[in-house]
Simulated assay, not measured.
Amino acid sequence: MSGVQDQLEIKFRLTDGSDIGPKSFPAATSVATLKESILAQWPKEKVSGPMTVKDVKLISAGKILENNRTVGECRSPLCDIPGGVTTMHVVVQPPALEKEKKALNDQEQNKCVCVIL
């Protein structure tokens, strides 16, 4: 199996319904490399874009793809049509620091202080 079958046409569907791609990737491409490609091609006009690969989750055939897996390993035999385009959904997660700050603020707001006289 060489040539066209070793290549996959992938487009990335963003949460607002717009797409990045399609673009051809070798089956040996890692999911982390796909995420780097998304970062490089992220539309500049979009306000809440990912800052790092860790901010991006890729979903294909209902499964969250792991960074260390290859595109070939993640292929779904039921969904992939030879010569067709595979759509992967992109979810951007807010940076962990913002989550931690929000959690700390929530804890401070819910803090109860008792004074005994």
Rank of each mutant, 00 (worst) to 15 (best):
G3R: 14
G3Y: 14
V4M: 13
V4L: 15
L8E: 07
E9G: 06
I10A: 03
K11D: 09
R13K: 14
T15W: 15
K23D: 02
P26K: 08
A27I: 12
A28K: 08
A28D: 09
T29F: 03
V31T: 09
V31H: 00
V31L: 02
T33N: 05
K35H: 01
L39Q: 00
A40R: 06
A40Y: 02
Q41P: 04
W42G: 01
P43C: 06
P43Q: 02
P43G: 03
K44F: 06
K44L: 15
E45Y: 05
E45N: 13
K46V: 10
V47Y: 07
V47H: 13
V47M: 12
G49N: 09
G49C: 05
P50Q: 02
P50E: 00
M51S: 15
V56T: 03
K57I: 10
G62K: 04
K63A: 12
E66Y: 06
E66H: 06
N67R: 01
R69K: 14
T70C: 01
T70Y: 00
G72C: 03
E73V: 08
P77D: 08
G83R: 03
G84S: 14
M88K: 04
H89Y: 09
E98F: 10
K99P: 01
K99W: 06
K102Q: 15
A103N: 08
D106I: 12
Q107P: 03
C112H: 12
V113I: 08
V113F: 14
C114N: 11
L117G: 12
